[in-house]
Amino acid sequence: MADFSPVELLELFQRAQNQFTDRVDAVAPDQWEDESLPGWTVGDLVAHLVNEALWVPPLLAGEPYDVIEGRFPDATTDLLGDDPLLGWESAADGALAAFAADDALRHTVHLSRGPTPAGEYIFEMATDLTVHAWDLARATGGDTELDGELVTAALVYAERLPDGGVPGLFDPPLDVPPSADPQSRLLARFGRRG
């Protein structure tokens, strides 16, 4: 990625993981079944990100999407085990270690949409973690104020998305006034009203 060096991308990803971890750690035991997004519980949202993190090592090792898809379960709350925070942290640590390996961000990964530079993949994942940190905090009454540097970086990624969103991945953007703050613009770009 021309905008960020591999070191900067890795730092952004780690910060996004830490921000999300803080929100997972704040989930009360009685909140896991609360709605986080339409049709998703808090547990579903965290399981979705655990699943994404579990895919990172094999994708960076060169395995194609369709092979990995057959090996991993769907993103269900079964992925969280008895301790959802531990389940998330374990998967997140594996993803971070895979991205941090020598020259990992110079590889190409094979996603459902086709070959993708690993630098773009980590940037997308950091953006996803940032937006979902807000989703999780909103659902649980937590801190919805996102890290400003992560928001700025995620806006760079978001501005590259098609105007109509990405069906199945990102909702179409909402209109916000030009004077809206960066976090509100980011959330609106992903179909959320902040």
Rank of each mutant, 00 (worst) to 15 (best):
D78E: 14
A180S: 15
P29T: 10
H107G: 11
V46R: 04
A47W: 07
P178D: 15
G70M: 10
E52W: 05
T140K: 04
L79Y: 05
S112F: 13
T140I: 04
G194I: 02
G39S: 05
R15S: 14
D34T: 11
D181E: 15
R15Q: 13
A47R: 00
P38Q: 01
G168V: 09
Y121W: 12
Q14N: 13
L186P: 00
A154I: 02
S112W: 12
A53C: 12
G165K: 01
A53I: 10
P117G: 14
E149H: 11
T21K: 13
T108G: 02
E35D: 07
G141D: 11
D22C: 13
P162L: 07
A188I: 06
D44G: 04
P57W: 06
H48E: 07
D78T: 12
P38M: 04
L111N: 02
T140D: 03
A104N: 08
A97M: 11
L105S: 07
Q31K: 04
P167L: 09
V131T: 08
Y157D: 03
V176Y: 02
V24S: 06
P167S: 06
E35K: 10
A75V: 01
H107M: 10
D74R: 03
P57V: 06
P84E: 05
L54E: 11
E159C: 03
F190V: 05
F170A: 14
A139W: 01
R15M: 05
F190E: 03
Q19A: 15
E11P: 00
N51F: 14
V24L: 07
L80D: 02
A61S: 15
A92N: 00
A16D: 06
D78Y: 03
A91H: 05
S112Q: 12
F170N: 12
L96M: 12
D74H: 05
M1V: 07
P115L: 08
P182V: 04
A95G: 06
D22F: 13
P57C: 10
A91E: 03
E52K: 10
V42L: 07
D83G: 09
P57R: 01
A95H: 00
R71E: 13
P29N: 12
A26P: 06
F123T: 06
T116Q: 14
S36P: 02
S5Q: 05
D74F: 07
T127C: 07
P38F: 07
N51L: 13
D74T: 09
L187F: 13
A139I: 06
V27W: 09
T116W: 13
E35H: 05
T140Y: 01
E63K: 14
M1L: 10
E89D: 11
T77R: 11
Y157P: 00
G141Y: 09
D66Q: 13
A47E: 03
P64C: 09
G191F: 08
A188V: 10
V176K: 06
A158L: 09
L37Y: 09
G165I: 00
Y65C: 02
V56P: 02
E33S: 14
G62D: 09
A139Y: 07
D78Q: 10
D83N: 14
Q183F: 10
L155K: 04
L155E: 04
V151N: 02
E120P: 00
E124Q: 14
L174T: 04
G81Q: 05
S184F: 02
A47D: 05
P117Y: 12
A188E: 11
V109T: 03
Y157T: 01
G194S: 14
A91R: 01
V109I: 10
A153R: 03
L37Q: 03
